[in-house]
Simulated scan of single mutants.
Amino acid sequence: MLLTVTHTTRYTFAESVYHGLQRLRLKPKSTHGQEVLDWSMDLTGAKPEAHYDDQHFNHTDLVSIEPGAPEVVVTCQGTVRTIDNNGITGMHSGHMPLWCFLRPTPLTRAGNRVRQLVASVDADRENTLAFLHALSKAIGEQIEYVPGTTDSTTTAEQALTAGQGVCQDHAHVFLSAGRLLDIPMRYVGGYLKMDGQIDQEAGHGWAEAHVPGLGWIGFDISNAICPDERYIRVATGCDYSEAAPVTGIAMGAGETRLDVHLSVDEKLVGTQQQSSGSGGQQQAQGG
Rank of each mutant, 00 (worst) to 15 (best):
K267Q: 15
G203R: 02
D53S: 11
Q168D: 03
G189L: 04
E35A: 11
V269N: 10
D228G: 12
A171W: 03
D84K: 02
G165I: 03
G140W: 04
Y240V: 00
M251W: 05
H7W: 03
E141F: 08
T9Y: 02
G213S: 07
L2G: 06
Y145S: 12
L102A: 07
L214Q: 14
D54M: 01
G270Q: 11
Y145A: 11
E141G: 05
G178N: 08
S241W: 11
D122C: 02
L175V: 07
D84R: 01
L180S: 08
V17A: 09
G203D: 07
A156D: 03
D54V: 00
E49Y: 04
M185F: 06
T271F: 06
A110I: 10
A224G: 09
E242F: 00
R25A: 02
I198V: 05
G78Y: 01
H204M: 01
G189H: 03
E144I: 05
R25W: 01
G248Q: 07
D122H: 03
E66Q: 15
V74W: 01
G279V: 13
L258Q: 15
Y187D: 00
I225E: 14
V166L: 11
I88R: 13
G279P: 07
E35N: 12
M96H: 09
T271N: 02
A134V: 10
Y231V: 14
A162F: 10
G286C: 06
L180E: 14
Y187S: 02
A123S: 13
G163E: 05
T79K: 02
L180Y: 04
Y187L: 01
R10V: 14
K47F: 13
N85E: 10
A235W: 02
S263E: 13
E66I: 15
G279C: 10
H261T: 15
A123N: 09
I232A: 01
L21H: 06
T6R: 04
S120M: 05
T271C: 03
L192K: 10
G189A: 06
G215A: 05
L262E: 01
S222D: 11
M41A: 12
L135R: 07
E15V: 02
C226F: 14
F174A: 02
D53E: 13
N112S: 14
T89M: 11
T79A: 06
N112T: 15
V260D: 00
R233L: 14
E157R: 04
Q283I: 11
